[in-house]
Amino acid sequence: MVYRSIKVLAAALVGLGLTTGAALAAGEVKPPRTVDWHHSGPFGTYDRAQVQRGFQVYKEVCASCHGLKYIAYRNLMEIGFSEDQAKAIAGEYTVEDGPDASGDMFERPARLSDKIPSPFPNANAAKASNGGAYPIDLSLAAKARVGGEDYLYSLLSGYTDDTHGHECSTGTYYNPYFPGSCLAMPPPLLDDLIEYVDGTPATTEQMSKDVSAFLTWTAEPKMEERKQMGFKVIVFLIIMAGLLYAAKRRIWARLH
């Protein structure tokens, strides 16, 4: 693919793969399986249906432990929900507001401008409820891990009983894609754990992909705008460079 070769070229420009990450350094970690995402490439856009399914997975599975604090309900309109749908989703949640006239905090249904509330009031409470492990906020998960959405997808669908001789201590689970191999999150997805609104069969594979696509959007909501603007800017600059080169030749020709 053209995009892949640009990626290689960019890597060459920078020198040698200087940004080798933690995953490779650990040695025994399996590199993530790559997916040909709808949002890959210089013209890639988010697959609205997939991202919406991913939101459903987040809402019905991940949200019990993981926050998504940088996403407001109004943002859901960016992935194809109508204003009424987004309002209805917001209405299912309650958020804390206040203080009211008498100084008390109170709960009210969420509005479009509210951010998605986190399941725990703070990190310590989250750790206390999860055996000492902190379930990270997922807003930036796809950018905060080497391998990005491929890693998230591989991790979620990669739990296996074949531990290759790894002994995971009680309360941790083997996953070949996880740096360190044993993680505190039990396998979160099972076939048919949820029922997709659009009728897509909810296999572990499907849900892992969908939620990873969703989390790519939460991490980089301006990606479509960025790539589209980028294409125009780069074409403009290349034409400008061509014209300036010709102009330079023309002007310097006076020196003969």
Binding site: T19, R145, G148, K227
Partner: peptide, 12 residues
């Protein structure tokens, strides 16, 4: 900036 904005940064 437009296609590989995080390439030179660190995921961490």
């Amino acid at each position: 900036v437009f296609w590989f904005p995080n390439y030179l940064g660190h995921a961490d």
